[in-house]
Amino acid sequence: MSVELEGVRKRYGPLEVLRGVTLRAAPGEAVGLVGPNGAGKTTTLRVLAALARPTGGVARVCGWDVARHPDQVRRRVGFVAEQSGVYGRLSGLEILEYFGVLYGLARSEARRRAEQLVSWLGMEKFCGRPASTYSRGMRQRLHVARALLHDPEVLLLDEPTTGLDASTCRLVREAVRSLARQGRCVVLATHSAEEASHVCSRVVHLAEGTVQHEEAAHYPLRATVEGHPVP
């Protein structure tokens, strides 16, 4: 299993956000977490990204316990948060190179990988500009590229299409499908059941910090984004 959550609980002070979430996802599977605001979708992803330590239960990514081996988990996870900031005075390419080095790539390798992803996500026209000039869609593509730099086994996406125009939405959705098709495990949190059923193979409904029910959502897996294979 790429992702395993067994009775995961998470408490922030008096507020229990997760109340025993159990979830599994295999390689090549795209799982949608759907629920209203406050259901625990983002917290579930933060636990899986080793950003939040569970207060109960066990969370494992690729067999590594997130609480005990957060660095091993971080090597295997790519995370696109709903409201991620960018370093506005650096260009998209510089940001990708920087994170490439942080993920352990040699500088030349980081640059090569960054250029591949820039090309794949159609960012050539703007990737040399300071990131402060990017639109929301451009920023989102940059975050997807950043999350894929180290070729992660698990990709976590939190509301990746919120506020994007139709064409960028389509690009992100097809990218998610392609990644799953290539054997990566994708966990996508969204408040829209429709989006989850379009993108994912399985939809998990969360409410008040617990899994309410699961359902299969068949989708046509495609291995390309705008005709190019995922690098």
Binding site: A49, R75, F79, A81, Q83, G85
Partner: peptide
């Protein structure tokens, strides 16, 4: 600015 978490995500 939301940049701290993406940095913490890196190994």
């Amino acid at each position: 600015r939301g940049a701290w978490d993406i940095l913490r995500c890196a190994p």
